[in-house]
């Protein structure tokens, strides 16, 4: 993502040749823990074995709201909901740090998630996990949103107590607790996230997977 700044610097309307001081990353906060996490990845994700049979597959069933009440006035997102076959209702899962989460399964059974940061004009989105091993599954225990995951916000499977972002070297660059299957971090990553891990209440890693990177990175 450093290239985003380089790209912006190259588009300077009044260039002066001043060097760009891309801020150095903060020292790794929990490198010892990160090393343990790497070793623990091979442990089977037993915490996920008890997948619930309810519609969403998570304990937080939420309260039913009309889909028309979700992301009001966002015509593009409304169109996406229709294209992705979302029905007339969604489940309001809760609000963390000003971000409201809504979920449903579409007509094809895929898990779909909408977020709405009510106080912000831009922090809104909607998407469906169309992968065969879609959320919640043993490999996908945390669905970050948007998927270019520099925002640690989303929904987590049952049994997940913490969600962390690691950089390419395995250092924890952001960490946030899970509350009622939801997570939303106020903090910014202290480095460039490369993978996401989920941990149970004992600190055991239950899943780990690489993150898609923005094209500007």
């Amino acid at each position: 993502m450093t290239d985003v700044i380089a790209r912006l610097a190259a588009a300077n309307p009044v260039p002066t040749g001043a060097a760009v001081h891309e801020p150095a990353r903060l020292p790794a906060r929990r490198i010892a823990v990160a090393a343990v996490l790497v070793a623990a990845v091979a442990v089977p994700a037993v915490a996920f074995a008890g997948r619930l049979a309810d519609a969403l597959g998570i304990s937080n069933g939420g309260t039913t709201v009309s889909t028309s009440e979700v992301l009001p006035g966002q015509s593009g997102l409304d169109q996406a909901m229709q294209e992705l076959k979302v029905g007339g209702t969604m489940q309001y899962l809760g609000t963390l740090n000003g971000t409201s989460f809504y979920a449903t399964r579409n007509a094809d059974g895929h898990f779909c998630l909408a977020i709405d940061h009510t106080a912000m004009q831009y922090d809104k989105g909607f998407g469906c996990d169309l992968n065969a091993d879609g959320f919640p599954s043993s490999t996908v225990q945390a669905l970050v949103f948007p998927p270019v995951a520099h925002f640690l916000q989303g929904v987590a499977a049952d049994g997940v107590a913490t969600v962390e972002l690691l950089d390419a070297d395995g250092n924890v660059v952001e960490s946030t607790p899970v509350t009622d299957n939801l997570f939303e971090s106020d903090a910014a990553p202290t480095g460039t996230p490369a993978s996401i891990v989920t941990l149970d209440a004992t600190g055991t890693v239950t899943s780990r997977r690489p993150l898609p990177q923005p094209s500007g990175s």
Partner: peptide, 13 residues
Amino acid sequence: AASFRPEPEGALR
């Protein structure tokens, strides 16, 4: 433009 339609496994599309 590609939001919610990423390619990697496990991501939203």
